[in-house]
Design a protein around this nucleic acid. Structure first.
Lengths: 303, 303
DNA sequence: TTTCTTTTATAGAGATTATCTATATAATAG
DNA sequence: CTATTATATAGATAATCTCTATAAAAGAAA
C-alpha cells in the first residue's frame, strides 16, 4: 500500500525538481525524502524520476502519477477540512479570491458584516483574473471565489449574487452624455477603451450588445479601472464602467461624465466554490451578506 | 496528517459495523484497528463511530467521511493501477461486467479472440443489471462494463460498439408471423411479455416505439431470456428479443416463430469505463474485438 | 588536471511507532 | 447468573522511520 506521505514527497519533488528543496518543503531531511521516493518507486514498480547527480526530471509516468497524487492529497485534505468545519463551521481560515473589477468595490464594504457574522473566521483575500481564480479553486489554493458570468466555470458550484450593468463614461463635455440614459448606439464607431486582455470585464463589455458591432481601441489598454478612468478624463476615448464600481465611488475626484447604459447584457456576479467543499453553509451565508452589501450601496440607476 | 490506512480502517468499519470483522478485512487484529480508528478520530477531532459494547454505528459525519475516504482510496488504488498498467498494459486482472441480455450472447464468442489478443490478461466476468454495473464501475469493483443505452451513465466514459434491433417472437402458428418483417403495430393490444423490472431491456422494449402505446402484460415477468422464450412457446403471449441474442442461438430448440421488427429504436450497445482509468487502450482494443465478434455472428436481418 | 561545490545515495544509530497477545470491561441473551 | 460476544487497554516485541554523517558523482572554477 502506498502512503499519502510518499505521494506528498512526489508532488514536492515534481514542483521543486530538487531532492533537498523538496525535502525542506515536506519538513524532512533529504535522505528521508530520497528513501521515501525510492520506496514509492519500488512499490509501484516504475521509475518516477530520472536523477542525474546534477538535475532531476520526472519521467512521463512520474508526471502523470504526480498529477493524480495532487488530487488524492487534495481529497484527503478535504476530509480534514470537513472534520474541522464540522467542529466549528464558522472558524478557521477562508481564502477568498475575487476579480479586480468586482472585489475592491464590494469586499471592503462587506468586511464589517462578515466579521460580525463570523467573528472567528480568518479571511484571506486575493485579487486575480478569472482563469487564475478557477485554477486556484480547483487546486485547493482558494476556497471560494467572487467572479462574473458568463464564464465557463467547470465543475465548480455557485450561487448568483446580483446582476451588474454598465454606465458609459465619457470625457468631460463629450457629446450628449449629461446623465441622461444612452443606449448601445453610443458605442458604435467611438474610440472605446477597455482593460487589457484577460480581464473578464473586457470580454463582457465587448459582448454587452450582441447585435452591435463594437470594437475596442487597442492602441492603449488599461490594467485597472482607475487607470482606465484617467485615460477617459484625458480625452483619449470612452469606456464602459460597471455600475458596482461607480456606486462604490471609483469616480471620486475624476473628471468624467457618466450616463446609464440601457439595453446592455449585464454581468452576472456569482460566488463559486468546489463542489466537494465542506463549508457550503458558510458560503451561502457569505453570499447573503454580499447581496445585502450590494443593495446597501447607492442604487445603480441614478448614477 | 491522516493516513490511507486509517481511511481504510474507517471504510471497513463502515461496511462491517463491527470492529473485529473490520479488522479481519484489513488483515490486522482488532486492537490495531481500534487504535487506528481512535487515532483518526483524534486527528480529525470528531467522533466517527458510536460504540456501545453491543453495536457500532457511524455518526453522520463519520458516514460522510467514510464516503470521501472510499473515493480517496479508489484514487490511490488507481495510481497503483496506472503504474501496473504502465509496466504491462496488457497483463493483470480485468473485471468485466455485462448486462444479462447482452453478455451471454457476445462474451463467449469473443473470449477466444480476447485471449489471443491479450494472452496474459486474467478476465473476470460478472453479469449484473445496469444499475449495479454502474455502481460497481464507480466504486472500483469493476473495471469495464458492457451495457446498452439509452441509459444515464454518469461520469463514465464509453465507446459505442453496435446497435441492436429486435425480432418479434410469437407462439408457433400465432397470427401472421412467418418470418416476414412486421412493424410496431403488431405489439399494440397484444399480450406482451417482458423481463422483470430492473432489466434495461424491459425499459428499452417499452420505449422502442415512442409513438405507440405499448403495454407490458405484468401478470408474468420473466427473469431471463430463455425463460421468456419458453413462456412465449407456451402461448402465454409474445415478446421482443434482441437480434444479438437470436443470432447467438438463444432460440435453439425452442418452439417459437420470429419475425424482424422494423422501425423500432435499437439499443445502443456500448463499452464503458471510469474516466480515470489507466487502461483505456486495452478497453479500446477490447471494443474492437467485440465489434468484430458481433459482425462475425449471423446477420440480424434474415432472422 | 585538480579542486571545490552541489547534489543524491548510503550506512548505521536511535527513537518513535505499530502490532501483537493477553486480558479487562461491558452488555446482552439464555 | 452464567456464557457469549464485542470493544478497550496494557505491555512486550518488532518494525519502521528519521536523523546525522559520509560517500559518490558530476559539473564548475582555478
Amino acid at each position: 500500500m502506498i502512503t499519502l506521505r510518499q505521494l506528498r514527497f512526489l508532488t514536492a519533488l515534481a514542483e521543486e525538481l530538487n531532492f533537498s528543496r523538496a525535502a525542506e518543503v515536506c519538513f524532512v531531511t533529504q535522505p528521508t525524502l530520497s528513501a521515501g521516493l525510492k520506496e514509492l518507486e519500488q512499490m509501484l514498480g516504475v521509475q518516477l524520476a530520472e536523477r542525474s547527480k546534477r538535475s532531476v526530471l520526472l519521467t512521463p509516468i512520474g508526471e502523470e502519477i504526480a498529477t493524480r497524487a495532487r488530487a488524492v492529497l487534495l481529497a484527503a485534505h478535504e476530509i480534514e477540512d470537513l472534520a474541522a468545519a464540522h467542529k466549528a463551521p464558522e472558524e478557521g481560515d477562508l481564502r477568498l479570491g475575487a476579480i479586480p473589477t468586482i472585489g475592491p468595490f464590494l469586499i471592503p464594504k462587506a468586511l464589517p458584516h462578515i466579521r460580525a457574522a463570523f467573528p472567528k473566521l480568518r479571511l484571506f483575500l486575493r485579487e486575480e483574473k478569472t482563469d487564475s481564480l478557477l485554477e486556484g479553486l480547483a487546486s485547493g489554493r482558494l476556497d471560494v471565489v467572487l467572479m462574473a458570468r458568463p464564464f465557463e466555470i467547470g465543475t465548480a458550484e455557485f450561487t448568483p449574487l446580483f446582476d451588474d450593468g454598465y454606465h458609459l463614461a465619457t470625457p468631460p463635455g463629450w457629446g450628449r452624455a449629461g446623465g441622461a440614459p444612452v443606449d448601445g448606439g453610443a458605442l458604435e464607431g467611438a474610440r472605446l477603451l477597455l482593460l487589457e486582455q484577460g480581464h473578464c470585464l473586457q470580454r463582457h463589455a465587448l459582448r454587452a450588445f450582441p447585435d452591435r458591432d463594437i470594437q475596442q481601441d487597442e492602441s492603449f489598454s488599461a490594467t485597472s479601472l482607475p487607470t482606465l478612468i484617467s485615460m477617459v478624463s484625458e480625452g483619449l476615448g470612452i469606456t464602459l464602467l460597471p455600475d458596482l464600481a461607480i456606486d462604490a465611488g471609483v469616480l471620486s475626484g475624476q473628471q468624467v461624465d457618466i450616463a446609464p447604459l440601457t439595453g446592455a447584457c449585464p454581468r452576472h456576479v456569482i460566488l463559486a466554490w468546489r463542489s466537494t467543499s465542506a463549508r457550503k453553509p458558510v458560503f451561502q451565508a457569505l453570499a447573503d451578506i454580499l447581496r445585502q452589501t450590494r443593495t446597501g450601496l447607492l442604487p445603480a440607476a441614478p448614477g
